[in-house]
C-alpha cells in the first residue's frame, strides 16, 4: 500500500504540491478516525459492565466520526458537498451526547447498578470463562 501510494503520488509530476498535501492530510485524518472507531468497537465488546461501555461508544461517536468527516471535507475541497458534511458533523455533535445521556438516565432510573471501584477487566473476563 505504501509503495502504491509513493508511486501514485510522488512520481506523478502533474500534481501540484498543494494537492499532494491535501491528499496526505485527508488520508491521515481518515486513518486516525478509523483507528478510533475500531478502538471504540473493541471497547464496547471488551468492557465489563454497561456504564463503562457507554464511554467506549461515546469515543466512536465523537472523535472517530468527526475525524473521518474532516478527512472527507479535505478530499472534496470547498463545495456544496463539504457544507453538507459540515452539517452532518454538527448534527452528530448535538445528537449523540443527548442519546447517550438518555440511555444512561433511563438505565439509572431502572435501578441498574454500576460496578464501582478499581478493577482490571481482562481478569474479570478470564474468571468467567
Amino acid at each position: 500500500m505504501i509503495i502504491a501510494f509513493l508511486s501514485a503520488v510522488v512520481l506523478d509530476s502533474n500534481l501540484v504540491w498543494t494537492e499532494i498535501l491535501q491528499i496526505c492530510l485527508s488520508c491521515l485524518a481518515i486513518a486516525s478516525g478509523l483507528f478510533f472507531v475500531l478502538a471504540g468497537s473493541i471497547g464496547v465488546l471488551r468492557f465489563p459492565d454497561f456504564y463503562t461501555r457507554l464511554h467506549a461508544a461515546g469515543m466512536t461517536d465523537t472523535l472517530g466520526a468527526e475525524l473521518i468527516l474532516i478527512g472527507l471535507i479535505l478530499q472534496s475541497g470547498f463545495t456544496q458537498t463539504s457544507l453538507k458534511l459540515l452539517m452532518i458533523g454538527f448534527f452528530l455533535l448535538l445528537t449523540s451526547p443527548t442519546a447517550t445521556h438518555a440511555i444512561a438516565h433511563s438505565a439509572h432510573t431502572a435501578n441498574l447498578k454500576p460496578k464501582l471501584g478499581k478493577h482490571s477487566f481482562s481478569k474479570v473476563q478470564r474468571d468467567r470463562s
Binding site: 472507531v37 471504540g40 468497537s41 464496547v44 454497561f50 461501555r53 457507554l54 461508544a57 466512536t60 461517536d61 472517530g64 466520526a65 473521518i68 468527516l69 472527507l72 478530499q75 472534496s76 458534511l85 452532518i88 452528530l92 449523540s96 442519546a99 447517550t100 440511555i103 433511563s106 438505565a107 431502572a110 441498574l112
Partner: peptide, 25 residues
C-alpha cells in the same frame, strides 16, 4: 440487558452514517 442492545443499535447507526458518507465518495 436492554440498554446494552440500545447502545449497540445507536452506535451501529453512527457507523452507518459514516459508511454512507464514504460510499457517496
Amino acid at each position: 440487558t436492554l440498554y446494552d442492545r440500545l447502545l449497540a443499535v445507536n452506535s451501529f447507526g453512527t457507523k452507518t452514517i459514516i459508511f454512507l458518507c464514504i460510499f457517496c465518495f
